[in-house]
Amino acid sequence: MTRSVLAQVRVELALTLRRGESLLVALVIPVGILAFFSKADFVDLGVETPVEFLTPGVLALAVMSSAMVSLAIATGFERRYGVLKRLGASPLTRGRLLAAKITSVLAIEALQIVVLVVTAVALDWRPDAAGIVPALGLVVAGTVAFASLGLLMAGTLRAEATLALANGLYLVFTAIGGMAYPLEQMPRAVELVAQALPGAALSESLRGVLTDGADVPSWSLIVLAAWTIATPVVTSRLFRWEER
């Protein structure tokens, strides 16, 4: 059982690392945002210490890029090329395929988190040590929510539509997900919409637990929990293994 999952994880990781564009959204953009905005004096984020604001935001961005964008696009094209169908004829069960995909997403996230945390600490980020374990829990919850969203796209849309939508959502959440720019600075209507979406829910919860002396807004935990519970249910009902 574990042997077949490992064989699949190895392939998932090899293919992910081979896709240049997934490395761009997974590492280059989050690190770039973190390094650029924490040092650029001419951009006023309206926060006292930019790195303290930005680090939880780019961690959320990293989770979203791997769990949603990369997973959605890869799975969408696997479905297009009949890879999922072919796997369905092999002894690798659907449960094990899902386990392999989640394992490889978590492995890539671990790499992202290490790179981002090292960069942030070099930029004088000092997180609340008590928040580290809760933060890892939030990362797992966010991974479940975003991976389910990614698989929902991959399993219901044509591969090209999944590609476009996943990248579009990446931009939307980067802009209004509280990842690179504070929600409070936005028009009230945009802020309300953003607060109902998983991007802001994850970034604001992470910010709450990792920032010294800050509280976790209760709305963000409720919204994140709702997405984490609801999307897997919806996805498991709507996912189709073959594109027709």
Partner: peptide, 29 residues
């Protein structure tokens, strides 16, 4: 499934994978 081999009409092969990789992958199942 462990006792049956299947060749689909369109192979179900990912364009970005290498020939020996996909064989090793399925060997692992």
């Amino acid at each position: 499934k462990p006792r049956v081999g299947v060749m689909l009409q369109d192979g179900g092969l990912y364009p970005g994978i290498k020939a020996h990789e996909v064989l090793r992958q399925y060997a692992g199942f």
